[in-house]
Amino acid sequence: MTSNATNPMATTCYPPAASGLTYNPYAPRNVWNRAMNLLAALFATIAVLPLVVVTLYVLYKGGGAITPAIFTELPPAPGLSEPMGMGNAIIGTAMVTGGAALVAIPVGVGGGIYLAEVARKGWFAQSIRFGVNVLAGVPSIICGLFIYALVVNTRILWGESFSALAGSLALAVLMLPTIVKTTDEGLKLVPQELRMGALGIGASRFVTITRVVLPAAVSPIATGVVLGIARAAGETAPLIFTALFSPFWPDWASGWGLLAPTATLSVQIYNFGIMPFEPQVQLAWAASFILVVMILAANLLARWLAHFSAS
């Protein structure tokens, strides 16, 4: 130790650089580096590949099946090939998803406001945050079983069992954590000065939150909501035991169609996709096409919204 302290330049312990500063392509570390570069590029390619392949395949198989009749007709009976439509499922998806949004947005935004504006800390807020995380992790099929047991099996909704409304409730359970989280996080991005400014001129908390804070956070919240709705629209598992399916147009007499079993695009893909009949399989592809295009559009919209808020 002491000898080194007096003569610190004991440089013998490092191997001499054989090639000076020149890049040695055969040095183990450089070979290893190039191999890893390649591997990373390969992994990234593999990761992107499924999206490209699935999207192209769906656009190819489904796009070919899109006709005007798709939007205006009902699906054929098994074994027949006429008519080729799924207007009922398109309406059904809109109804079920719309209903879910109507339930989940007020509850989710309200809950998010509570977490971000009313009680940021404290055991109650912490337990709600914990609940949000747990709910976000609940498998979607369990949401379906939950609503089945709570609503369908008990016939609590005006004596009806399977219904579009039950499907909406199941999807709402699924959307809820996303909306609470995005609202909570979106509101936290609002600068504290804005709140102080509003409260400082004597505005009440209600006015401060609804007129000042919420509008300032509207675009991140809207982004989250759009993504949440898009995700819900493609969900199948929560619907197969709640909204069920129907080969008919919504029964408008039954609670404006909300209280009867209802077809949705996603359940139609599942039901028709595993059938041995070619027309049904084709309709499954057509439904996939509509869902994928809709969801990609919603994602682009969300991205645009996020971009909009950034600038």
Binding site: T55, V58, G234, L296
Partner: peptide, 13 residues
Amino acid sequence: LLAAIPSVVLGLW
């Protein structure tokens, strides 16, 4: 975006 493709569509594929 891959995360946004519905599970049922991936199943069909």
